[in-house]
Design a binder for these strands. Sequence first.
RNA 1: GGCGUCGUACCCAAGCGGUCUAAGGGAUCGGUUUGCAAAACCGCUAUUCGUCGGUUCGAAUCCGACCGACGCCUCCA
Length: 460
Amino acid sequence: MSLKLYNSATSQKEDFKSLSPNQVLMYCCGPTVYDAPHLGNFRTFVFYDLVKRVLIQNNFEVKQVVNITDIDDKIIDKVNSGEMDYKELTTKFNDVFLQHSKTLNIEKADEYPKTSDHVPAMIDFIKQLIDKGYAYNANGNIFFDTEGYSRYGKFINIENTEALDDEDNALGKKNQKDFTLWKAWKEEDGDITWESEWGNGRPAWHTECAVLATKSLGNAIDIHCGGIDLKFPHHENEVAQVEALLDATFSNYWLHSEHLTLEEEKMSKSLGNTVNVSDLLGKYSPETLRLFLLSSHYRSKIYFSDKKLDDSSKMLDKINRFIEHVGINTLEGSNANISDDYTRFLDALNDDLNTPEALGIFFDFINKKNKKIHDNSLSEKDIKESQEFIAGFNFIFCVFNQSSLKNQEIPSEVQKLASLREKMRNQQKWEEADKLRGEIEKLGWLIEDLKDSQKLLKKK
RNA sequence: GGCGUCGUACCCAAGCGGUCUAAGGGAUCGGUUUGCAAAACCGCUAUUCGUCGGUUCGAAUCCGACCGACGCCUCCA
């Protein structure tokens, strides 16, 4: 089955067709680096990774750009609070973002352009919009003129008839929906400012993304991603600028991921109900977090709870045990030994990234093979099919990596206790054996007794 | 107020017109297995998909109303 994606621009699932035959250009709205990221942020970043991996699985070469917003009101607020200076703050949270991305097995993007490195290009971009009559200067603020742009409302049904409020009037806005491209310098901005022909100031968020995307990927891209909250107004405003200027389609597909919520309320820093990723990583493995995030469809809300993370952790155990039993020595797929289930798995992912269904299919497959393991009828073909499926599954879900395969070596201490236990069991000294099992568990290893041997598994 | 999304078992979560007496995971309770466990396997747990109507030969799936939850319209992943 060919890849289908739900396009927010048309509100429909569509067959995916790339601009050039085997390449996909993909722009993803990245973090604003002013604070520690929460799990909701990473739900979206893991979603980007999902999109990318599924594209790769479909043999596309993906060029992905994730921007880093480091010019922003919140950053300025934080700097003004005196906690950290500008450079220190933005560097710190940029590093945290990259570090967590790595921990969560998110594939590196090709570029992570920072807003502050491209301000001259933004000034130039705004100038072109003014020249074309799509933007106007009001007291040093530059606004996009939504009235002069007929395609405003790509993502939302709106009527641009709402009245201007006092604040709008004070700013000199012409229409309520007009948005800022350039913010004139204010005292609180301090030295976070750039010179332009309209006076000092800084580019506004929507312009930042418009410029970073077109500058790094070109004027026409395949996929633009972001969290659902960015759909309006951020993406609406971003696309309006680019398409006004170019008079051509900017991105063919717009993908938006749903929120992670805490107690039925969106997790967000302004609501103060966030769950910090660093904290979670102290309690759960990155694989658990990743599996948790991928076990709901990306367009459904996820209600966060520890119970669900525990469930995900158990799922992981089950998967890992299966992998242990089948045995695997490479994560490279071979395209041979493809089972029907694996094909269904790939189809599910190609059907708008249906990870929950794909997971279900994988578990179904595990159950079938476990039955065979149970009654000792696992064939060579079964093993090869399993290895192939595991490799393909792992490429998307990342439950373990090549290095962890090698790190499974059993410490000699554990090994010693285990063989002693084996001896005790053979002599039917059950109490001794059970005691040893307890000791082994304390060291972080579980024992599974097989027909005439025992298997050691690392506790997760 | 305007614009949207969602409501499937004890919990989570797919399915979006017929193969649905509804996948998969977790949990519970029985059973097989085991020296005992653990794991694995078998079985039980939704004739029902928020409620009420309608369309259809046929609906969890389409339409309408209502109830409930959430999101966007201001910063937000």
